[in-house]
Amino acid sequence: MDEAITGPRCPICGNDRWHARPLPECTHCGLAVAGLRFDAVALREAIRAHLAGGPMTGFMLEPHARRNAAWALGMVWQADGWRPATPRSPDVTLGIIARASDSDTVAAMLAALRPTFLKAIVVLDGTIGDAATLAMQARGVQVMAHPLGGDFAAQRNRVQALADGWVLHLDTDERPDDALLGALGWLTAAADRDGLCALGLARRNLVDGVQSALWPDIQYRLVRSNVRFAGRVHERPEVPFERTSLALTGAIDHRLDRARVLARSKVYEAMSAGAGRPGDEAALLRPFTAAT
């Protein structure tokens, strides 16, 4: 396995880990740079200029990394090259897994997000019947109940089985930002063109309202409905790497507090050995800076 080193944050994805290869390469998006002493703003603009037809100087982009960079910069492939994406209405289902006790929160999420999505599906770890759940159904939301049973992948797969096309999965403490919502249409269209079926989204963790150092915290949450997830905790779609990509326009905002960070590490470790991820816990409790 390649040694990974810590360095400045990648100008494309914001990650601070680099493969120590002949050219340092971002462990997330694949951008390779001539050296780790770079002006991030200038390098980002140089990449944008290259995608528009200019030279590639001071960096390298393999095909998958070129797509990651282009999408992060709001560009898609057209007949004459990489061009700014044109906004389009998304043909995407919103999928939410939640506890039955969170039905009021889910109802509020749906009130804010439902207009963007053609369909919404909610799977509750509990029973259906309270007023908030009935209100969801009245708005045309498909609601089912099934015990979580300590298996997040299985619960997401219940959403998948009820959906068609692309699905954006959210938890009750997550919200897509405006940039991500505005990009869903062209991102999924571009993914269909390239034969992709799972897209990794950046998640911005806000602990007690402060962005944490765990960024971009990639989550594969935008997936085709025929895909299935695996893993009781930290679930991921079961698809070949070549049918995935990063979609780095916008982010999912994840709001939690310090007590929740500490508690979930213990819960996850109890569910699956190693799932507590002490490194993630430490990064969540450390504030974000441009350098770490």
Rank of each mutant, 00 (worst) to 15 (best):
D177I: 13
A213Y: 04
P240E: 13
G195A: 14
R204A: 12
G279H: 14
G231D: 09
R228Y: 08
G209W: 03
A213G: 06
R224A: 11
V267T: 14
E281D: 04
A163C: 12
S212T: 08
D217S: 15
Y268K: 10
A163H: 03
Y220C: 02
G274L: 07
K266V: 12
R255E: 06
V207D: 00
A230C: 02
L214Y: 09
A259T: 06
P278C: 09
A273G: 04
D253I: 07
L206P: 02
A247G: 07
A179I: 10
H254I: 10
A179P: 05
A259D: 14
V227Q: 00
T244E: 02
T172H: 08
L181W: 06
K266N: 11
D173W: 09
T172Q: 03
L162E: 15
D217E: 13
K266R: 15
R228S: 12
P240C: 09
Q219C: 12
A275E: 03
G200C: 08
A259E: 14
A259C: 01
C197L: 07
R221E: 02
W215S: 07
D194K: 06
G250Y: 01
L184G: 05
E269W: 09
R260K: 05
L184Q: 03
A251E: 14
G274K: 07
A270Y: 08
N205W: 07
P240D: 10
E242W: 10
G209E: 10
R204M: 09
A283V: 05
W186V: 02
A198I: 08
S272C: 12
L170R: 01
R203I: 05
L181I: 15
V227F: 03
D173P: 01
A263C: 02
G279P: 02
L162C: 14
R232G: 01
L285C: 08
F241H: 09
S212C: 15
R243M: 03
V239F: 03
R175M: 15
D171L: 12
Y268V: 04
W186R: 04
L180G: 04
R221L: 08
D253L: 15
G165E: 06
T249G: 00
H234V: 06
R203K: 15
A202P: 03
L262Y: 04
A259G: 06
V210E: 13
N205G: 05
L284H: 00
A190P: 02
D253A: 14
R260Q: 13
L285G: 00
E235V: 00
R243L: 04
P176Y: 12
A191D: 04
L285S: 06
R243T: 11
D253N: 13
H169C: 03
S245Y: 02
L214K: 04
Y268W: 14
N205L: 11
P237A: 03
A275Y: 06
A198D: 01
D217M: 11
R232T: 11
R258N: 01
A213S: 14
D257W: 04
R277H: 12
L201D: 04
G276V: 07
D208A: 13
L184F: 10
C197T: 09
E235D: 15
L199F: 10
A189E: 13
T249F: 04
P176A: 13
G182A: 15
F241S: 09
L181V: 14
